[in-house]
Write a protein that binds this DNA or RNA. Structure first.
Length: 265
DNA sequence: CTCAGTGTTCAGTG
DNA sequence: TCACTGAACACTGA
């Protein structure tokens, strides 16, 4: 579920379903990992009877603002999701937090692999971890004149730098690969060695890819046919891109990296 | 049974 | 202190 387009899509759904409603009941799982130490009681009393104002986002974090008390900060990890339903029987075994609103609807955050987090924070935007994030690659203006000097300072592979949330908040593994594929840049190249023209193409592709993915509500089937995205899964040694060029798989910054040497130099 | 995985953090290194 | 790397985290599904 978890790169910016999917997170933004989840935020919009939550905003649409929940803004302005009052919380009538709360279920919080006993899960000290996902709740970062907080027990169900604390979550319950912070949420019950509160009115939901809005859902905000920066990078891959979403927070729910209430009419009083702390906000609820969500991070999906690799497997977090939001669900909306009208029948309490739909609560699943991976449900971490479920809210019932005054109109009888349910909202839940699930997290299969427990790498997600839910925390109460008074001012998420101005506290860690959100305050440590760099540009939001969807909402903040990005251009090469701002990015190029930052890349010049980084000695790591450009793929690793694209994944750095302190710089490019919201970029995840497939977006980083897609950007470098479309920009024609070898993912192993050191950021400090890129030309300003490379930086321009990277910025342009990054904006275009994120904008498009959000515009189609992160629905993978609606991503353009030409994107590497459709061909990069499974590490199949015979994998080829839309145009028939061979896809190579390598490990950069500890992450599987798919790229096409034919097009990326 | 083994292992990769759309993410983040932290220990260790230089 | 900074920048960077790799392992750990947790657990499903291939």
């Amino acid at each position: 579920m978890p790169e910016l387009p999917e997170v933004e899509t989840a935020r919009r759904s939550a905003q649409q379903y929940l803004a302005g409603k009052r919380i009538s009941a709360v279920y919080a799982a006993r899960d000290p990992i996902v709740f970062d130490g907080a027990g169900p009681g604390k979550i319950n009393s912070a949420l019950k009877h509160r009115k939901i104002l809005c859902f905000s986002r920066k990078g891959k974090y979403i927070w729910m603002e209430l009419d009083s008390g702390p906000s609820v900060l969500f991070h999906f990890g690799m497997t977090g999701r939001f669900h909306f339903y009208t029948d309490k029987a739909q609560r699943c075994r991976f449900c971490k937090l479920e809210l019932r609103t005054d109109d009888g609807q349910f909202f839940a955050m699930t997290n299969k692999r427990r790498l997600g987090r839910i925390r109460l924070l008074d001012d998420p935007l101005n506290s860690p971890p959100v305050i440590r994030l760099g540009f939001d690659v969807y909402s903040d203006p990005i251009d090469a004149s701002g990015i190029y000097p930052l890349l010049r300072k980084r000695k790591a592979a450009i793929k690793a730098v694209l994944l750095d949330q302190k710089l490019f908040a919201g970029v995840g593994n497939w977006i980083a690969d897609e950007v470098l594929y479309q920009a024609g840049v070898d993912p192993r190249r050191l950021a400090c060695k890129l030309s300003s023209d490379d930086a321009k193409r990277i910025c342009r592709c990054l904006k275009r890819i994120v904008k498009k993915a959000v515009a189609v509500s992160a629905d993978k089937k609606r991503f353009p046919k030409t994107w590497l995205f459709h061909c990069r899964w499974g590490k199949d040694p015979r994998a080829r891109d839309h145009y028939g060029d061979k896809i190579h798989f390598t490990q950069i910054a500890g992450r599987t990296t798919a790229w096409v040497p034919e097009k990326q130099t």
